[in-house]
């Protein structure tokens, strides 16, 4: 099975010390690698104001991670971990590889179209040669 990419965001209570957050991240990384996934990125966004109250709190400590895996079991396990860990209030996992693939495809499509119809490229290229003769003249003189 091909590799899938996921985004994982979780929000900790704002009063958790930094060390505890690091601990949560470390356990997640440990379980992920154990299950055969690889963590691409782990970013701490820090304390942010949330759009609505969660557990009667207005602020939360956001952590953002990206990981890749070939099977979905990892997600289940990571979410279970997040659910049982105390400082975590909320989490969200999003599968992104299909959207990234689509993005790639559209990008390539656009580039190909741009290459096929060099309408804009032609006027841009014509001014380019003109400085060249000038440069030659300058070289001659």
């Amino acid at each position: 099975m091909e590799e899938r990419q996921y985004d994982l965001i979780f929000i900790c209570r704002p009063d958790t010390p930094e060390t505890d957050i690091d601990k949560v991240i470390a356990t997640l990384e440990h379980t992920a690698t154990e299950k055969g996934a690889k963590i691409e990125k782990a970013e701490k966004w820090g304390r942010k104001r949330m759009a609505y109250r969660v557990q009667k709190l207005r602020e939360g400590y956001y952590v953002y991670m990206v990981f890749k895996s070939t099977h979905g079991e990892v997600v289940k396990e990571l979410e279970r971990r997040l659910k049982v860990s105390d400082p975590v209030m909320k989490y969200l996992t999003v599968r992104l590889d299909e959207e990234l693939k689509r993005q790639d495809k559209l990008k390539r499509h656009r580039e190909r179209r741009a290459a096929r119809r060099p309408r804009k490229a032609a006027p841009a290229s014509t001014p380019a040669p003109t400085p060249a003769p000038a440069g030659e003249q300058a070289a001659i003189t």
Partner: peptide, 14 residues
């Protein structure tokens, strides 16, 4: 909708 789920955007005004 994803942003709402992770409290980046509100579901409804408070």
């Amino acid at each position: 909708k994803r942003a709402q789920n992770i409290a980046l955007l509100p579901f409804a005004a408070e």
